[in-house]
Design a binder for these strands. Structure first.
Lengths: 202, 202, 202, 202
DNA sequence: AATGAATGAGCCTTCATTCAT
DNA sequence: TATGAATGAAGGCTCATTCAT
């Protein structure tokens, strides 16, 4: 099935925004990458900035929705953090360009739009904050600065989008598991058994 | 003492490149921020891109030099990692804009220039790789994927530049110590005493 | 019939480049003369320099093609030279601006482009060199330095573009004939009859 | 003896204006070629345009003066034309850059300045016109259009500046003699003896 | 005599966008 | 749906020139 034109434009934008940055990408670049004229481009998008906002919004919506789905019914903070990390890492490894765009181009958006995007991001990060906070409250985690630890872990996981390659030696599952491991250690959950399991597996 | 003009231009560039991105910063923005005409700007820089490259180069040189100085004479991998993390965190908290520029704008540079910058970055990262590698080799660290762990920690520390504020509740020293803590836990160094020491101190 | 826009740009360029020189003509001058905005200009040309190269190329191509057509089947060197001179003079009198551009602005072109233009010019001048050379070889022409004579005649004829005006007393045909006369005398063809014929005719 | 600075500037200008054109030459180019800063340049010249005008004026003054000196006491039109041609050719071969500048950059000058330069040029050309005119009047020359012939010869001789190289096979004296020959033939002076002499001599 | 600093104006070119077809 | 044509604004950079030192 032929690719929907709107989708083609979207993908072109994702590719170029991630590679050259929003301001480094001209609409001529977008048009060329989409095999469209610059004029035609405007049948499939509002403006360059709206296109960017759409990409960010979708990326964050998907992340938020699947995170909420993943956590449904879970109470154990360690398990919640593990799931969050794995989901986050998988998302960033699979959609490195979209997530890099979210991370790098927020400053481009006009205030109103930016606020709506930041809201989504904050909602998502609250899931992390809650997991870490609950873990510390219940004594499962021992970390001196939960807030700092949360953001440190998030940044660590975001980084995956900047370097992970599917062609590397590490499978996506192993990567996600490894990161969950590192994260749980970082909060002081010291998951003896699983750590050893991971070690044995290699 | 009045600020050297060249330095004024540099600072304007650092501020704007970090805030709005390289491509998002116009030469006229730079001129205004430097209280200079656009023409005068060119007495103090080669081109916008060279200015960027200079900023990056200086930032990385400084980081690399101080890291090498910091590690001189040290052999214990845990201590080396701790020092690297603390230095890195401090540098990123103190010069968040410079380091963000290094992280975000590499793609702007022409191939030749980029290579020279990447070389510096790689030299610096090798210090981390060596510390982690030696730790694993000597059994002090237990981590399944040293390479991944190293980059995960680096990204985590880079993140500091994206959120740390001196006006926050955490002092720079505490922040650096905390990150070192998290990092050592992440590599499985489980530094009982120092971790407790750290906990007690807060 | 309305003038094609591309052609309007071309004519504006010819007029301005010839009058004020390539470097003396700004893109804004071109736009104004073409009744276009500077941005629109770029729908009809690659760059200012490409526009110049196109003008030169077309001018030389036309000259070369018509010269080759004119000489087809001719062997007599005197007749060939006469035809070349007349054609050249006519072309330079009719298209003085294009030919002046070719003569004056070669130095502007980038090496590669320049080479391609110079090649055309050389191909054309070879027709002159052959005519003069054959005339000397067969004894019809007596000139001590055929190469010098050829270039002297060419320069003399090029000059037409710098002064001829259709409003002058001399018709184009008479002008061309007169130049042919001067040229043949210069190579020592001393065409008694035709010279007298020419004299009688005026 | 060290070269006077003002003279160094002048020479740099001659070189660059001739090579790249007036508008193609920046004052930075001039400064570099003169081994001066752009600011220092202005101790030795009024403005770029005045520098150009000076060069042109001197070139034409010299030509005019030496032509008048050369013709002093001569009445024979053929001899006068021969001397003019030889002088002109020599001047253009020896100072090809100055003369090219005079020929190519008149259009740059502001009206007032231009007029003063054109006046000089016209005074010089009147010497040619007189020689040709007298020759025709006295029947020594036979040319249908004296005015056209005069300008044709002038352009032919101007051309020397565009191609003559001292490294070529032809000596400057031979070149000048050859041109005089061509010119006299062109006006129909048919100087049997001298032509043969020329031929024999080579 | 010499120049580093400074600049308003201008350079060529591309920007994102609109609109008639 | 698709696009050639069009553009005002802005892009990075250089222009010729002045002036204080």
């Amino acid at each position: 099935m032929a690719l929907d034109t709107r989708e083609r434009v979207r993908r072109a934008a994702v590719k170029l925004f991630a590679t050259k940055g929003f301001h480094g990408t001209g609409i001529r670049d977008l048009a060329q990458e989409s095999n469209l004229s610059t004029a035609s481009l405007y049948h499939y998008m509002g403006s360059k900035e709206e296109l960017l906002a759409d990409i960010m919004r979708d990326c964050l919506r998907t992340l938020l929705d699947s995170a909420e789905a993943e956590l449904t019914g879970l109470t154990d903070p360690a398990e919640r953090l593990r799931r969050l990390v794995k989901l986050h890492v998988r998302a960033h490894a699979r959609k490195p360009r979209e997530t890099r765009i979210v991370d790098h181009e927020l400053h481009v958006l006009a205030p109103t739009t930016r606020r709506s995007i930041v809201e989504l991001r904050d909602a998502y990060e609250r899931l992390w904050a809650d997991a870490v906070g609950d873990g510390v409250a219940s004594g499962v985690f021992t970390t001196a600065h939960p807030g700092v630890t949360r953001i440190a872990l998030l940044e660590m996981c975001n980084g995956v989008a900047r370097w992970y390659s599917a062609r590397g030696s590490l499978s996506l599952d192993d990567l996600a598991t490894h990161y969950a491991e590192v994260a749980l250690r970082a909060v002081g959950a010291c998951p003896q058994r699983s750590a050893e399991g991971q070690s044995r597996g290699e």
